[in-house]
């Protein structure tokens, strides 16, 4: 079972990294959130019966954890050196030729938690049905939300 789980985590590491980048304010935050998402995935994996697609399952856990996770509680230090040395890659890190990604990060960081989850799924090319299934917003509300985020982002860009 553990082998399957490791395969699934590696297959979906991109989405976990993106969620951590979207919700984590700094490297430590991203690492904490990453650990919590993995833990929650493992707990849930034991009872996963394939009711939803594995991708929806992974997004649900990652987003639910990111929004409800209390980052103010200090994580107990894990003794494993593998964890101590591990860092969640900063996908939106700014480099001279990548100013766009820094801009992207800045724009997204100004959205609230729910908006972040909607825009993340939208940018990940999820359908309105899938976004609705993961967030609990109605299908029509997803459309309204995306339009509002679009307006909000336009305002942020103009500032």
């Amino acid at each position: 079972m553990e082998k399957n789980f490791i395969d699934i985590v590696n297959k979906h590491k991109g989405l976990i990294f993106k969620v951590c980048n979207m919700y984590g304010a700094d490297a430590e935050d991203r690492k904490d959130l990453f650990q919590e998402i993995l833990l929650q995935m493992w707990k849930s994996f034991k009872s996963f019966r394939g009711e939803a697609s594995i991708s929806t399952w992974a997004y649900r856990i990652a987003i639910n954890t990111a929004v409800t996770y209390s980052k103010k509680i200090k994580r107990n230090e894990l003794s494993g050196s593998s964890v101590m040395n591990f860092e969640v890659p900063d996908l939106m890190e700014s480099q001279e030729k990548e100013e766009r990604s820094a801009w992207l990060h800045q724009a997204i960081s100004q959205l609230d938690k729910i908006e972040k989850s909607v825009i993340l799924l939208y940018l990940e090319d999820k359908s309105y049905e899938e976004i609705s299934e993961i967030t609990g917003l109605t299908r029509s509300n997803v459309g309204v939300r995306i339009n509002r985020i679009k307006t909000k982002l336009s305002k942020i860009i103009k500032l």
Binding site: E2, I6, V9, L38, L39, T65, S70, R75, F86
Partner: peptide
């Protein structure tokens, strides 16, 4: 595998 194993055997901070 080692990293994943260490993380999943840790304590959860979920509220």
């Amino acid at each position: 595998e080692k990293l994943i194993h260490t993380i999943i055997s840790g304590k959860s901070n979920y509220i």
